[in-house]
Structures are given as C-alpha cells and as structure tokens.
Nucleic acid binder design. Structure first.
Lengths: 239, 239
DNA sequence: CGAATCTTTGAAAGACGTCAACATTGGTGG
DNA sequence: CCACCAATGTTGACGTCTTTCAAAGATTCG
C-alpha cells in the first residue's frame, strides 16, 4: 500500500471548526491547540482506542468515520454511535476520570487530531463559552442516548431500522457534502449492530423496504428514495 | 388528607450534600443557594415537569423517589431512570437550551428544592470545581445511558430484569439506609417499563426467580436473597 | 483465479407480547 | 369496622416477531 505523509491540519483554518465544539475559540487559543496537538491517520479497521484503556486526551475527527461500540459477553457487538468530521470522541471517559468504556474503530479512512488532556482542561478553565459549549454537547449526548433507549426498548426492528436509516442519511449527508443523492455506506452487519438485531433480519427488512420503493440498494450503499414513506414506518404515523 | 407545612431544608446542613453535585460548594455559596431556592412537596403521581415544558432551573431531590420516563406513540412508556435523595433532575434539558424531553413523576412522596437557572449558571461560572463536578456527572450519565443501550439491545428479558433488580437494590439501599434487608418497592408495571417489556413477562420472571430462591416477594416489595446467583443470570457467567 | 468476506434466502425453533379471565390488595365511604 | 371498587398482580393459551442455523450466491482483493 502506498502511503503519503499526512498534511497536518491547522486548527485556525480547519473547515470543521464551525461545526465543532471549538467554534467559540479565538485565534490565539486555536494556535495553542495547533501547537500542542498530535495528528494521526487510521486505516479501516484500526482503533482510536480500546475499552479498558486510560484516556489521556480527546480525539477530534478531521475526516473519515469512526464507530463507537461495545462488545457483549457472547461475542456480538452493539454500535453506540458513529462519529465523523468535526466530532470529538472519548471525552465522556476523560471527564469521568475513568477508563474507556467503548471501542472506537475506523470504518472509513480517518484523519484524527489528538488534544492532550491538560491543554483541553486549560481551555475549559479559561474560556467560559467553551465550557458552556461542552456542557451543551454532553447534554445533547445524554438526550440522544435516552432517545436510543426508547427506540430500542419500545419499537419493533422494522421501525428501528427505518429510523436508523433516516439518521444515517443525515449523518452521511453532513459528513460527505459532495454526494447527491446521499449514499449510506455501511455494511449489513454494522447496520444490524447499530440496531441491536441480527444481520439476516436487517437484510430481510432492507429488501422489503426496496420492494416498497423506499430505498435503493447499490453494491455497497443505500439510498433513500422515499423519505416520507420511510418516516411513516419509523414513527408509525399510520395508527 | 392531613398536611403539614414543609420544613424548608437549608443547603448548608443538608444531609445529602456530600453525595450530591454540590459537595464542593463553600458555605457562602450554600447560603446563596438556600436564599434563592424554592422548595415543594409532591405526592405520589404528581409531576416535577412534563415533556415539552421549558426548564427554568434545576430540581434537587431532598427525599423521595422520582421516575424519569418517556411515552411511546402507542401509549406505553419507558422509564429512563429513577432519581432519589441528592440527585439533581432535568439539567440536561437546561444545558441543551431546549425543552424537557421526558416526564418526571413522583412514585414516593418527595421533597424537592428548586434552583433557578441564573443562580445555577452563576455558580457554574464562578466555581471551577463545581463545573468539573457537573461535567463529571454528565459524563457518568452518558456512560450509564450507553450501558443501558447495550443491555436493552443485546440481552434477553430475563437477564435485563436480573440486572435491573441489582441496580434497584443499590438504588433503594442508598436512598433508604435504615432498612435492612433492602426492600425494592416498585410496581410490576414500573419494573416492566424500566426493562422495556410487558408487565406479565416481568411477573413470570419474578416468580421464576423466587422459585430459584434468588428473591423474596413481599406484598409490595422485592428482596434479593441470593445476590450472587442473580448476578450470574444478569451477566451470564455460566457460559 | 481463488480465498476471504459479505450478502442473501429458507426453514425451524424459541422468546416474548397480547388477550382474557381471575385473584389480590388498598383505599374510600357508609 | 366492614363492604365495595379500582388498581394491581397472576396465570394460561396463543400468535407472531425475531433469532438461529445452514447453505448457497456475490463481491472484493491480492
């Protein structure tokens, strides 16, 4: 495999900044960040961190996609969320003063900046707006997690898959603005792990959605072609 | 029903303080809190807040138990968590600058202090340690929510019920230190809503656990009598 | 081309929810 | 204090959604 040296991205000119938790930093703070951060490229399948490891900083994704998941005792795994450009990863573990409770594995070649803990904490202490942004972000994470609890606990698989396709379309649309229509590029197995179901079940439901002309199935991608109908299934308007 | 005037609890001498997010406040700050907060008593069935309402402050539970839950489109509901003495409730909604996404309903007569938003934010701004505590708390909430996602998504009902009984024992033990053995006082319906299952299923599993001599069933309470065996079911050590 | 991985389909078994009937409990008012 | 009612708890039968197992087709990559 041919490798090129990384183009080290400066925080001050990062195109993700305005969609990230760092959007309230001033130029001096951004320069400080740039001067102390690390940067690394991860190929598909590699890990940003493992469950059980000690966090020593925060990962900020510059490009690519990472899945955050947990393993279960019987060898299966459950995806908690996906993270893409502009997202920071692993900060709950940092703030909880514990160890990582999840795995973070790359599913699309990813460029990641790494901000050491003490620099991050310094920012938090000195910049009230930044702190407020982070509290805001953590709150949104809590709310999103709670929403997923509801979906998984109360909805049948078909509705969950429909809902997750809508979420994934939004995610991939944001992370990959060039493509239209938006392509959801995720394996059946990952889609199953995201929905807490079996791969075969996802496959059956997808082909059912295709027959209902709600989605198109490319070789390695899914397009939503009837957003409204899929939303109807996801949220059961037909009651 | 006979009512007594509330004994307004002072924050400086609150017995819950050391187990709450306020444990790092100094006496001046505690006095400020006491001087601006409200206080109210809620009987069983009453609401601290409704989904859709705007948060204007934070609820801090002095005594009693509150369930935080969401409704589903088909009339069922799912309990997200229980909150008791020393817990604060509704702060995600406050920090996210949005509306409440959950209902908070009292299941045991509850005394609640209410801290207005601006006072809370003032503390957050002036006291770095307090802010760190809150970030810590939010992180723990995220981690706990993620754990619940895993349990609900990947474990069969029997294991989830076992796990939740262990969690509830810990919760009721903390909130009600006098009683030994610890009594879990929660209705079958609520236990079902906590586990994302049907009431009948919970009843069947409970009676199965009783036959396996893991729990005792009082009239309105559950005791765990074989913690180890129940843990074995909850986490499937017998693989 | 061939190995490995991913996807698809079918059949069978099992877990769980729903429905219906009945028992128990706790609270209310007479 | 008792009788009654509503709420809560219990049990059985049944149907269905979902998982699991197995086997075969498709795709990617070296």
């Amino acid at each position: 495999m041919k490798l090129k040296p990384i183009e080290f991205p400066a925080c001050g000119t990062c195109e993700n900044r305005c969609q990230s938790v760092f959007y309230k930093l001033n130029q001096d703070e951004l320069n400080d960040l740039s001067n102390c951060k690390g940067c690394n490229q991860y190929l598909k399948g590699n890990f940003l961190f493992y469950e059980g490891a000690r966090p020593t900083g925060v990962h900020c994704i510059h490009s690519g996609i990472v899945k955050i998941y947990k393993q279960t005792s019987d060898g299966k795994y459950q995806i908690i969320k996906l993270a893409g450009a502009g997202d920071i990863v692993g900060y709950e573990a940092l703030f909880s003063n514990g160890f990582y409770k999840t795995f973070a594995q790359v599913i699309e070649e990813t460029l990641v900046c790494y901000i050491p803990k003490n620099q991050f904490m310094l920012l938090l202490k000195d910049n009230y707006a930044f702190m407020a942004t982070l509290m805001h972000q953590l709150s949104l994470d809590v709310i999103e997690s709670e929403n997923r609890i509801i979906s998984i606990a109360t909805k049948p698989v078909r509705e969950r898959v429909a809902e997750s396709l809508l979420q994934l379309q939004e995610f991939f649309g944001k992370k990959n603005k060039s493509k239209n229509p938006i392509e959801i590029t995720i394996s059946r197995e990952e889609l199953a792990a995201f929905n807490g179901t079996a791969t075969e079940t996802v496959i059956r439901i997808l082909s059912e959605f295709r027959q209902g002309r709600m989605i198109d199935l490319g070789k390695r991608s899914i397009h939503i072609i009837n957003h409204k109908k899929l939303t109807g299934i996801a949220f059961q308007y037909n009651n």
